[in-house]
Amino acid sequence: MNGKGVTSATPKQMKEAGLGYTPENRKEAGLVQVLSTHDNLCLASLAHIAPSGIVTRTREQSYVRRRISDLAIKVPEPMLPVSSLSGGNQQKVVIGNWLNTAPQVMFFDEPSRGVDVQAKRQIFDIIWDQAERGPCGNVRFDRAGRSAGSCRPHFGDASGAHRRRG
């Protein structure tokens, strides 16, 4: 990773190294269902949002608003539990949570599972969009190739683009 060796990786180390990961099983591993959409969007990025350790809702707000508008998450009220959202919107929250950490490489593990067709399209648009923006390379493990046009694996440029941030 950026020329540094990584051994016996923990999620924490990988996050600090600039990796993002959206698990395939968002209900059990991706989201904290009892917490609000707001909290779930800030879960992984608290170190970015609050380097001093002190967190306020206002400080988190800008991150939350940005992701909700960027990813077009349909959420009536960010403070309500994330479990009230549809599958597709929940998946976008998982992705937004990780984009807030400003990762250099994102892993998407079956991001289209249990998501309706329209949201599936949007999610893949998000992935392509992030891939094109440069700093965020994407490797996608979409095992069963859910739909045409989305099963082409895309590997982020391994040499140039990522180094810019490192």
């Binding site: 600090e16 591993a29 269902q33 009892v34 917490l35």
Partner: peptide
């Protein structure tokens, strides 16, 4: 405090979020 709520709500999600 945020981490406490996250870990209590879903240990696996909290762990994968790097907590």
């Amino acid at each position: 405090g945020r981490a406490v709520y996250a870990v209590g709500g879903n240990m696996e999600a909290a762990r994968l979020s790097g907590i």
